[in-house]
């Protein structure tokens, strides 16, 4: 059931959830939708390091967390000057000199 790095995997899944700000409930619901078999209470216990989960379920949980992270809006990017000039060129609202 467990492999040598299962504790490292658990700790890093937990860290990823905490860092991205998802609640255990949100993560569990997505994991459940990916056909996760372990119920919410036990997933919470696993994340807290209280009980192991089958390796495949751990990977499914990792997949669920990663998909949620991928759906987060990307960080805002800073525009370059010419990008703004081009963006405003078509709109006709050229800045007054």
């Amino acid at each position: 059931m467990t492999f040598p790095y299962s504790e490292e995997q658990r700790a890093m899944i937990t860290a990823a959830i905490v860092e991205s700000g998802f609640s255990t409930g949100e993560v569990w619901l997505h994991y459940f939708s990916l056909s996760g078999e372990v119920d919410e209470y036990e997933v919470e216990a696993y994340l807290a390091g209280l009980m192991p989960m089958p390796a495949l379920e751990c990977d499914l949980l990792a997949l669920a967390v990663n998909e949620l992270i991928d759906e987060l809006p990307p960080r805002r990017r800073a525009p370059f000057g010419d990008e703004l000039v081009r963006a405003h060129a078509g709109t006709g609202d050229a800045p007054s000199p």
Binding site: L29, H30, F32, S33, L34, S35
Partner: peptide, 17 residues
Amino acid sequence: SELRESLRSRDLVGIAK
């Protein structure tokens, strides 16, 4: 509505499996 979505998606995984 998220739960309904999630059950549907879980169903798809089952069929795909």
